[in-house]
Amino acid sequence: MTVTDWVFLAIALVTLFSAYRVVTTHKIMHAALWLGLTFVGVAGIFLLLGADFLAAAQVLVYVGAITTIIIFGIMLSSVEDLRGESFDNVWKRLSSRLTSSRRGIWPLLAAVGLAAAMVIVVSRGQWPASPHAPALDTPRLLGEALFTRFVIPFEAASIVLLVALIGAIALALKEERTE
């Protein structure tokens, strides 16, 4: 076990735990904060995997932007939910979920099944044992790839973003006008 391994292990555990809390915490604002922590953890994993640029982008986009707008969204819409549900016992909640008429055990089955299926596939696969030497200059690497090989997807993504932007504004404005 090298230092890197230990660090990875720690980061992975933090990430997974915060992800678990996103799903299970009863206060929605807490969930948003746990989500932010998850994003930071993922950024750490990126760093360990040698994807410097992506790690930076992860922090900027997810932690800086998405978590923030989610928090804004919560504050603008779910005022009642801010306080959370009456019981805080995990097992109580889990059992209440599992016995809920509509959801029952099936979502758990689906989630565990998907994860298990992926683990099975991964464990059976033939994987390269050692990683390649990490690229030293990932921003350059990605930049060149984006503007050469992937220029058309890049432009398409730009348009997707533009449309999303306009769509979001339009959706938000619509109600204002009618009022």
């Binding site: 509509r102 979502p107 089955l109 689906a110 099944g113 299926a117 992926m118």
Partner: peptide, 24 residues
């Protein structure tokens, strides 16, 4: 047709699980 999005997605994922298990 319950009208609940989550039901639909649940069905979707269960199908994928079954498919993956068969495949695996």
């Amino acid at each position: 047709q319950t009208g609940y999005v989550q039901s639909y997605v649940l069905a979707l994922f269960l199908t994928v699980v079954v498919g993956l298990l068969v495949f695996a």
